[in-house]
Computed example of a mutant assay.
Amino acid sequence: MADSSKRTAKLAREIGDFARRHGGSAEGQIAYVGQTGARIALVGADGTWGDLMAPSMETARQATERAGITVHESFAGEMAEKVRTGPYEWSRMAGIQLGGSTEARPAKRPAGA
Score class of each variant (00 low, 15 high):
96 I>P: 02
40 I>D: 05
103 E>L: 11
103 E>K: 13
33 V>T: 15
1 M>K: 00
48 T>Y: 09
74 S>N: 04
56 S>K: 07
2 A>Q: 10
66 R>Y: 03
15 I>A: 03
80 A>F: 14
52 L>E: 12
105 R>D: 06
11 L>Y: 02
94 A>L: 06
58 E>I: 13
99 G>S: 14
91 S>L: 02
93 M>E: 09
47 G>K: 06
55 P>H: 03
60 A>N: 04
107 A>E: 15
34 G>H: 01
25 S>P: 07
48 T>C: 02
97 Q>T: 15
87 P>V: 10
68 G>Q: 05
15 I>R: 04
75 F>R: 09
7 R>Y: 01
108 K>C: 00
59 T>M: 00
66 R>K: 04
13 R>Y: 07
88 Y>C: 07
13 R>A: 13
17 D>I: 09
38 A>G: 04
69 I>H: 07
78 E>Q: 11
100 G>C: 01
101 S>I: 09
24 G>R: 02
23 G>K: 13
62 Q>E: 14
108 K>E: 15
10 K>T: 08
102 T>V: 14
83 V>G: 00
70 T>K: 03
21 R>G: 13
11 L>I: 04
9 A>R: 04
42 L>M: 07
9 A>V: 00
82 K>T: 10
28 G>C: 09
89 E>K: 02
55 P>V: 05
18 F>Y: 14
22 H>F: 01
111 A>H: 04
17 D>R: 14
91 S>T: 12
40 I>S: 01
41 A>Y: 13
52 L>T: 11
92 R>F: 12
74 S>Y: 05
17 D>F: 12
57 M>A: 04
70 T>C: 01
102 T>A: 15
28 G>D: 12
68 G>L: 10
59 T>P: 04
106 P>F: 11
82 K>W: 03
62 Q>P: 03
16 G>N: 07
20 R>G: 08
104 A>E: 14
111 A>C: 01
